[in-house]
Simulated assay, not measured.
Amino acid sequence: MELLKGIRVLDLSRYVSGPNCTMILGDLGADVIKIEHPKTGDGTRRWGMVGMGMDNPYFLSVNRSKRSVAIDMKHPEGRKLLKELASHSDVMIHNSKAGSLDAIGLGWDILHELNPRLVLCEITGYGDTGPNRDRPAFDFPTQAESGLMSVIGEPDGTPMKVGVPILDVATSLFACNGIQAALLHRERTGQGTRISTSLLESALACMTNVMSDYLVGGTEPVRWGNGHPNLAPYAAFRGSDGWFTIGVATEGQWAKLCDVIGRPDLAVDERFAVNQSRLAHRDALNSVLQPEFAKGSREHWLGRMKASGIPCAPINTVPQIVEDPQVHAIGIIEKTDHPTLGGIRMVRSPISVNREALPIRRPPPTFGQHTEEVLTGLLGLSHEQLENLRAEGAIR
Protein backbone atom coordinates (compact mmCIF):
# COMPACT_ATOMS: atom_id res chain seq x y z
CA MET A 1 0.00 0.00 0.00
CA GLU A 2 1.37 3.41 -1.01
CA LEU A 3 0.15 5.71 1.75
CA LEU A 4 1.86 8.77 0.23
CA LYS A 5 0.91 8.07 -3.38
CA GLY A 6 0.41 11.37 -5.22
CA ILE A 7 2.88 13.26 -3.01
CA ARG A 8 5.94 14.57 -4.86
CA VAL A 9 9.12 15.31 -2.92
CA LEU A 10 11.88 17.51 -4.33
CA ASP A 11 15.00 16.30 -2.55
CA LEU A 12 17.95 18.70 -2.52
CA SER A 13 19.60 16.94 0.42
CA ARG A 14 22.93 15.10 0.49
CA TYR A 15 24.88 12.59 2.56
CA VAL A 16 22.67 10.83 5.16
CA SER A 17 20.15 12.81 7.24
CA GLY A 18 18.12 14.23 4.37
CA PRO A 19 18.42 11.24 2.01
CA ASN A 20 17.35 8.79 4.73
CA CYS A 21 14.29 10.95 5.38
CA THR A 22 13.29 11.06 1.72
CA MET A 23 13.93 7.33 1.36
CA ILE A 24 11.32 6.72 4.07
CA LEU A 25 8.88 8.98 2.23
CA GLY A 26 9.63 7.14 -1.01
CA ASP A 27 9.10 3.77 0.64
CA LEU A 28 5.68 5.04 1.74
CA GLY A 29 4.76 5.82 -1.87
CA ALA A 30 5.91 9.39 -2.50
CA ASP A 31 7.54 10.27 -5.82
CA VAL A 32 10.98 11.42 -4.68
CA ILE A 33 13.06 13.41 -7.17
CA LYS A 34 16.65 13.47 -5.93
CA ILE A 35 18.71 16.40 -7.20
CA GLU A 36 22.43 15.72 -7.61
CA HIS A 37 25.23 17.97 -8.81
CA PRO A 38 25.98 17.20 -12.50
CA LYS A 39 29.71 16.70 -11.90
CA THR A 40 30.02 15.15 -8.46
CA GLY A 41 26.67 13.71 -7.49
CA ASP A 42 25.70 13.10 -3.88
CA GLY A 43 28.69 13.14 -1.52
CA THR A 44 28.13 9.53 -0.47
CA ARG A 45 28.73 8.40 -4.05
CA ARG A 46 32.38 9.07 -3.23
CA TRP A 47 32.31 7.20 0.10
CA GLY A 48 32.64 3.86 -1.57
CA MET A 49 34.42 0.74 -0.47
CA VAL A 50 37.71 -0.01 -2.19
CA GLY A 51 37.07 -1.10 -5.76
CA MET A 52 33.49 0.18 -5.89
CA GLY A 53 32.32 3.18 -7.89
CA MET A 54 29.49 5.67 -7.49
CA ASP A 55 26.87 2.98 -6.87
CA ASN A 56 28.54 1.93 -3.63
CA PRO A 57 26.97 0.36 -0.51
CA TYR A 58 26.95 3.63 1.46
CA PHE A 59 24.99 5.51 -1.21
CA LEU A 60 22.67 2.55 -1.75
CA SER A 61 21.82 2.35 1.95
CA VAL A 62 19.86 5.63 2.04
CA ASN A 63 18.76 6.26 -1.54
CA ARG A 64 16.29 3.65 -2.74
CA SER A 65 12.75 4.58 -3.85
CA LYS A 66 13.95 7.73 -5.68
CA ARG A 67 14.63 9.14 -9.13
CA SER A 68 17.97 10.86 -9.71
CA VAL A 69 18.07 14.13 -11.67
CA ALA A 70 21.41 15.91 -12.18
CA ILE A 71 20.97 19.71 -11.96
CA ASP A 72 23.42 22.42 -10.93
CA MET A 73 21.35 24.55 -8.56
CA LYS A 74 23.94 27.34 -8.66
CA HIS A 75 23.64 27.67 -12.44
CA PRO A 76 21.00 30.26 -13.50
CA GLU A 77 19.25 27.78 -15.76
CA GLY A 78 19.50 25.12 -13.05
CA ARG A 79 17.76 27.41 -10.56
CA LYS A 80 14.96 28.00 -13.07
CA LEU A 81 14.47 24.26 -13.40
CA LEU A 82 14.38 23.85 -9.62
CA LYS A 83 11.76 26.57 -9.29
CA GLU A 84 9.64 24.80 -11.88
CA LEU A 85 10.08 21.50 -10.08
CA ALA A 86 9.20 23.18 -6.76
CA SER A 87 5.99 24.50 -8.31
CA HIS A 88 5.06 20.89 -9.17
CA SER A 89 6.03 19.47 -5.75
CA ASP A 90 4.36 18.97 -2.39
CA VAL A 91 7.54 18.81 -0.30
CA MET A 92 11.03 20.22 -0.69
CA ILE A 93 13.87 19.22 1.60
CA HIS A 94 17.51 20.24 1.98
CA ASN A 95 20.23 19.73 4.60
CA SER A 96 22.72 22.46 3.75
CA LYS A 97 23.86 25.20 6.11
CA ALA A 98 21.23 27.60 7.43
CA GLY A 99 20.47 30.30 4.89
CA SER A 100 22.08 28.47 1.96
CA LEU A 101 18.91 28.39 -0.12
CA ASP A 102 18.29 32.10 0.48
CA ALA A 103 21.78 32.79 -0.86
CA ILE A 104 20.88 31.33 -4.26
CA GLY A 105 17.38 32.75 -4.50
CA LEU A 106 15.49 29.65 -3.38
CA GLY A 107 14.54 30.72 0.14
CA TRP A 108 11.22 30.17 1.88
CA ASP A 109 9.65 33.52 0.92
CA ILE A 110 10.27 32.92 -2.79
CA LEU A 111 9.20 29.28 -2.68
CA HIS A 112 6.06 30.00 -0.65
CA GLU A 113 4.99 32.70 -3.09
CA LEU A 114 5.70 30.35 -5.99
CA ASN A 115 3.82 27.42 -4.42
CA PRO A 116 1.78 28.30 -1.30
CA ARG A 117 1.03 24.60 -0.68
CA LEU A 118 4.69 23.59 -0.59
CA VAL A 119 6.08 22.08 2.63
CA LEU A 120 9.73 23.08 3.08
CA CYS A 121 11.88 20.98 5.41
CA GLU A 122 15.30 22.30 6.40
CA ILE A 123 17.87 20.15 8.21
CA THR A 124 20.89 21.99 9.57
CA GLY A 125 23.73 21.18 11.92
CA TYR A 126 22.95 23.58 14.75
CA GLY A 127 19.59 25.25 14.12
CA ASP A 128 18.41 28.53 12.63
CA THR A 129 20.01 30.91 15.15
CA GLY A 130 22.94 31.20 17.54
CA PRO A 131 26.72 31.44 17.25
CA ASN A 132 27.03 28.09 15.45
CA ARG A 133 24.28 28.73 12.91
CA ASP A 134 26.68 28.88 9.96
CA ARG A 135 28.85 25.92 10.90
CA PRO A 136 28.65 22.74 8.81
CA ALA A 137 28.06 19.55 10.76
CA PHE A 138 28.45 15.80 10.39
CA ASP A 139 27.28 12.95 12.58
CA PHE A 140 30.57 12.10 14.33
CA PRO A 141 31.53 15.63 15.48
CA THR A 142 27.95 16.19 16.63
CA GLN A 143 28.04 12.99 18.68
CA ALA A 144 31.10 14.46 20.39
CA GLU A 145 29.82 18.00 20.82
CA SER A 146 26.36 17.04 22.01
CA GLY A 147 27.64 15.06 25.00
CA LEU A 148 26.56 11.72 23.56
CA MET A 149 30.11 10.36 23.37
CA SER A 150 30.70 11.25 27.00
CA VAL A 151 28.32 8.43 28.01
CA ILE A 152 29.55 5.80 25.53
CA GLY A 153 32.51 3.55 26.30
CA GLU A 154 34.07 1.91 29.32
CA PRO A 155 34.30 4.02 32.49
CA ASP A 156 38.09 4.32 32.31
CA GLY A 157 38.35 4.11 28.54
CA THR A 158 38.19 6.44 25.57
CA PRO A 159 34.86 8.14 24.83
CA MET A 160 33.30 6.31 21.89
CA LYS A 161 30.85 7.09 19.13
CA VAL A 162 27.97 4.89 18.11
CA GLY A 163 29.20 2.65 15.28
CA VAL A 164 26.55 3.88 12.82
CA PRO A 165 25.55 7.48 11.92
CA ILE A 166 22.87 7.40 14.58
CA LEU A 167 22.28 11.16 14.75
CA ASP A 168 21.84 11.41 11.00
CA VAL A 169 19.27 8.62 11.19
CA ALA A 170 17.49 10.11 14.22
CA THR A 171 17.39 13.55 12.59
CA SER A 172 15.91 12.01 9.46
CA LEU A 173 13.13 10.46 11.54
CA PHE A 174 12.29 13.75 13.26
CA ALA A 175 12.27 15.48 9.88
CA CYS A 176 10.06 12.80 8.36
CA ASN A 177 7.63 13.10 11.25
CA GLY A 178 7.49 16.87 10.84
CA ILE A 179 6.94 16.63 7.08
CA GLN A 180 4.01 14.27 7.42
CA ALA A 181 2.44 16.43 10.13
CA ALA A 182 2.86 19.46 7.84
CA LEU A 183 1.14 17.58 5.01
CA LEU A 184 -1.77 16.79 7.33
CA HIS A 185 -1.90 20.47 8.35
CA ARG A 186 -1.97 21.41 4.66
CA GLU A 187 -4.97 19.16 4.10
CA ARG A 188 -6.80 21.11 6.81
CA THR A 189 -5.71 24.62 5.86
CA GLY A 190 -4.53 24.50 2.24
CA GLN A 191 -1.24 26.14 3.26
CA GLY A 192 2.29 24.83 3.19
CA THR A 193 4.56 25.10 6.20
CA ARG A 194 8.26 25.65 6.85
CA ILE A 195 9.65 23.14 9.31
CA SER A 196 13.18 22.55 10.50
CA THR A 197 15.34 20.40 12.73
CA SER A 198 19.06 19.95 13.32
CA LEU A 199 21.61 17.34 14.26
CA LEU A 200 22.32 19.06 17.58
CA GLU A 201 18.65 19.27 18.58
CA SER A 202 18.11 15.66 17.58
CA ALA A 203 21.14 14.56 19.59
CA LEU A 204 19.82 16.16 22.76
CA ALA A 205 16.36 14.69 22.14
CA CYS A 206 17.90 11.22 21.79
CA MET A 207 19.56 11.33 25.19
CA THR A 208 16.22 10.78 26.98
CA ASN A 209 16.88 9.39 30.49
CA VAL A 210 20.55 10.44 30.46
CA MET A 211 19.65 14.08 29.88
CA SER A 212 16.80 13.90 32.40
CA ASP A 213 19.14 12.44 35.03
CA TYR A 214 21.10 15.69 34.80
CA LEU A 215 18.32 18.24 34.21
CA VAL A 216 15.97 16.84 36.85
CA GLY A 217 18.12 14.64 39.05
CA GLY A 218 21.19 16.88 39.08
CA THR A 219 23.53 13.94 38.39
CA GLU A 220 26.21 14.34 35.74
CA PRO A 221 26.04 11.27 33.45
CA VAL A 222 29.17 9.16 33.05
CA ARG A 223 30.22 6.19 30.94
CA TRP A 224 28.99 2.81 32.12
CA GLY A 225 30.27 0.68 29.25
CA ASN A 226 27.57 -1.91 28.61
CA GLY A 227 26.01 -1.14 31.97
CA HIS A 228 22.97 1.02 32.65
CA PRO A 229 22.95 4.12 34.88
CA ASN A 230 19.60 3.21 36.46
CA LEU A 231 19.32 -0.60 36.34
CA ALA A 232 21.37 -3.62 37.41
CA PRO A 233 22.12 -6.23 36.28
CA TYR A 234 21.70 -4.65 32.85
CA ALA A 235 24.94 -5.51 31.12
CA ALA A 236 26.95 -7.90 28.97
CA PHE A 237 28.33 -11.15 30.37
CA ARG A 238 30.45 -13.91 28.88
CA GLY A 239 29.50 -17.56 28.89
CA SER A 240 32.08 -20.27 28.33
CA ASP A 241 31.94 -19.68 24.56
CA GLY A 242 30.52 -16.24 23.85
CA TRP A 243 28.95 -12.97 24.93
CA PHE A 244 25.31 -12.23 25.74
CA THR A 245 23.30 -9.46 27.39
CA ILE A 246 20.84 -9.35 30.25
CA GLY A 247 18.33 -6.57 30.91
CA VAL A 248 16.79 -7.02 34.35
CA ALA A 249 14.19 -4.28 34.89
CA THR A 250 12.02 -5.64 37.74
CA GLU A 251 12.55 -7.37 41.06
CA GLY A 252 10.58 -10.33 39.76
CA GLN A 253 13.05 -10.74 36.90
CA TRP A 254 15.93 -10.49 39.34
CA ALA A 255 14.50 -13.28 41.49
CA LYS A 256 14.07 -15.46 38.41
CA LEU A 257 17.66 -14.82 37.35
CA CYS A 258 18.90 -15.89 40.76
CA ASP A 259 16.97 -19.16 40.38
CA VAL A 260 18.29 -19.70 36.83
CA ILE A 261 21.92 -19.55 37.97
CA GLY A 262 21.22 -21.61 41.09
CA ARG A 263 21.88 -18.74 43.51
CA PRO A 264 18.56 -17.95 45.24
CA ASP A 265 20.59 -16.57 48.13
CA LEU A 266 21.45 -13.50 46.02
CA ALA A 267 17.80 -12.46 45.89
CA VAL A 268 17.78 -11.93 49.66
CA ASP A 269 21.33 -10.62 50.02
CA GLU A 270 20.91 -7.07 51.35
CA ARG A 271 23.46 -5.81 48.80
CA PHE A 272 21.38 -7.09 45.91
CA ALA A 273 17.78 -7.43 47.13
CA VAL A 274 16.48 -4.30 45.36
CA ASN A 275 17.61 -2.34 42.33
CA GLN A 276 18.93 0.66 44.26
CA SER A 277 21.12 -1.64 46.36
CA ARG A 278 22.36 -3.45 43.27
CA LEU A 279 23.32 -0.12 41.71
CA ALA A 280 25.25 0.82 44.85
CA HIS A 281 27.09 -2.53 44.73
CA ARG A 282 27.33 -2.88 40.94
CA ASP A 283 30.97 -4.09 40.90
CA ALA A 284 30.33 -6.68 43.59
CA LEU A 285 27.23 -7.88 41.75
CA ASN A 286 29.10 -8.33 38.48
CA SER A 287 31.96 -10.10 40.24
CA VAL A 288 29.45 -12.63 41.59
CA LEU A 289 27.48 -13.13 38.37
CA GLN A 290 30.33 -13.43 35.86
CA PRO A 291 31.93 -16.57 37.41
CA GLU A 292 28.52 -18.23 37.45
CA PHE A 293 27.91 -17.50 33.78
CA ALA A 294 31.39 -18.75 32.86
CA LYS A 295 30.29 -22.23 33.94
CA GLY A 296 27.93 -22.68 30.97
CA SER A 297 27.71 -21.92 27.28
CA ARG A 298 26.00 -18.86 25.88
CA GLU A 299 23.15 -20.92 24.44
CA HIS A 300 22.70 -22.73 27.75
CA TRP A 301 22.12 -19.51 29.65
CA LEU A 302 20.06 -17.85 26.93
CA GLY A 303 17.79 -20.89 26.75
CA ARG A 304 17.20 -20.95 30.48
CA MET A 305 16.66 -17.19 30.75
CA LYS A 306 14.26 -17.08 27.82
CA ALA A 307 12.27 -19.91 29.38
CA SER A 308 12.00 -17.86 32.58
CA GLY A 309 10.95 -14.64 30.82
CA ILE A 310 14.17 -12.75 31.55
CA PRO A 311 15.08 -10.17 28.86
CA CYS A 312 18.28 -11.40 27.23
CA ALA A 313 19.96 -11.70 23.85
CA PRO A 314 23.18 -12.87 22.22
CA ILE A 315 25.70 -10.30 21.02
CA ASN A 316 25.55 -11.12 17.33
CA THR A 317 27.82 -10.13 14.50
CA VAL A 318 26.26 -8.64 11.36
CA PRO A 319 26.57 -11.96 9.46
CA GLN A 320 24.91 -13.75 12.37
CA ILE A 321 21.89 -11.45 12.54
CA VAL A 322 21.46 -11.55 8.75
CA GLU A 323 21.08 -15.34 9.00
CA ASP A 324 18.93 -15.24 12.16
CA PRO A 325 15.65 -17.20 11.84
CA GLN A 326 13.62 -14.25 13.09
CA VAL A 327 15.14 -11.94 10.48
CA HIS A 328 14.27 -14.51 7.81
CA ALA A 329 10.74 -14.84 9.18
CA ILE A 330 9.95 -11.13 8.98
CA GLY A 331 11.65 -10.82 5.59
CA ILE A 332 13.27 -7.46 6.25
CA ILE A 333 16.22 -8.28 3.99
CA GLU A 334 14.94 -8.17 0.44
CA LYS A 335 16.52 -8.72 -2.94
CA THR A 336 16.15 -6.17 -5.70
CA ASP A 337 17.64 -5.62 -9.16
CA HIS A 338 20.02 -2.70 -9.62
CA PRO A 339 20.85 -1.23 -13.06
CA THR A 340 24.62 -1.65 -12.68
CA LEU A 341 25.08 -4.12 -9.82
CA GLY A 342 22.48 -6.72 -10.73
CA GLY A 343 20.74 -8.51 -7.87
CA ILE A 344 21.52 -6.92 -4.50
CA ARG A 345 20.20 -7.43 -0.99
CA MET A 346 18.91 -4.46 1.00
CA VAL A 347 17.20 -3.83 4.33
CA ARG A 348 13.67 -2.88 3.31
CA SER A 349 11.50 -0.40 5.18
CA PRO A 350 10.71 -1.56 8.74
CA ILE A 351 7.13 -0.28 8.32
CA SER A 352 4.20 -2.58 7.60
CA VAL A 353 0.67 -1.51 6.63
CA ASN A 354 -2.18 -3.86 7.50
CA ARG A 355 0.52 -6.40 8.31
CA GLU A 356 1.94 -6.13 4.82
CA ALA A 357 5.56 -5.00 4.69
CA LEU A 358 6.40 -2.06 2.45
CA PRO A 359 8.39 -3.44 -0.50
CA ILE A 360 11.39 -1.84 -2.17
CA ARG A 361 9.60 0.27 -4.78
CA ARG A 362 12.66 1.39 -6.73
CA PRO A 363 16.32 0.37 -6.46
CA PRO A 364 18.73 3.21 -5.64
CA PRO A 365 19.19 5.25 -8.84
CA THR A 366 22.35 5.54 -10.85
CA PHE A 367 23.85 9.02 -11.16
CA GLY A 368 21.42 11.22 -13.11
CA GLN A 369 19.47 8.18 -14.27
CA HIS A 370 16.13 10.01 -14.49
CA THR A 371 17.16 13.50 -15.63
CA GLU A 372 15.59 13.18 -19.05
CA GLU A 373 12.56 11.28 -17.76
CA VAL A 374 11.67 13.96 -15.21
CA LEU A 375 12.48 17.07 -17.22
CA THR A 376 10.61 15.91 -20.32
CA GLY A 377 7.77 14.08 -18.58
CA LEU A 378 7.09 16.51 -15.73
CA LEU A 379 8.27 19.87 -17.09
CA GLY A 380 7.66 19.18 -20.77
CA LEU A 381 11.15 20.10 -22.00
CA SER A 382 12.11 19.07 -25.51
CA HIS A 383 15.18 16.99 -26.32
CA GLU A 384 16.68 20.07 -27.95
CA GLN A 385 16.25 22.05 -24.76
CA LEU A 386 17.88 19.23 -22.79
CA GLU A 387 20.90 19.22 -25.08
CA ASN A 388 21.25 23.01 -24.73
CA LEU A 389 21.10 22.70 -20.93
CA ARG A 390 23.74 19.97 -21.00
CA ALA A 391 25.98 22.09 -23.18
CA GLU A 392 25.68 24.96 -20.69
CA GLY A 393 26.53 22.66 -17.75
CA ALA A 394 23.16 23.18 -16.07
CA ILE A 395 22.28 19.48 -16.15
CA ARG A 396 24.01 16.15 -16.76
Rank of each mutant, 00 (worst) to 15 (best):
E2I: 00
K5Q: 14
K5V: 03
V9L: 09
V9D: 11
D27Y: 04
D27M: 09
H37C: 01
G41I: 06
D42T: 06
G43D: 10
R46H: 13
R46A: 15
G48D: 00
M49T: 06
M54C: 00
L60T: 05
S61P: 09
S68I: 14
I71T: 12
L85F: 12
H88E: 15
G127P: 05
G127K: 04
T129R: 14
T129L: 10
R133C: 05
G153I: 09
E154V: 05
K161P: 01
K161V: 07
A170T: 12
F174S: 07
G178A: 14
R186G: 10
T189E: 11
G192V: 07
T197N: 09
T197S: 03
T208D: 14
M211L: 15
D213N: 13
G218M: 12
G218H: 11
G225N: 08
G225K: 03
F237L: 12
T245A: 14
I246Q: 11
I246W: 10
G247T: 10
E251A: 03
C258Y: 02
R263L: 07
P264Q: 09
E270H: 04
V274R: 11
S277G: 00
A280H: 05
L302R: 00
M305P: 04
M305S: 04
S308M: 10
P314E: 02
V322F: 11
A329Y: 15
I332L: 12
I333F: 05
K335E: 15
R355I: 00
E356T: 15
P359G: 03
P364V: 04
T371P: 03
T371Y: 10
L375W: 06
A391C: 02
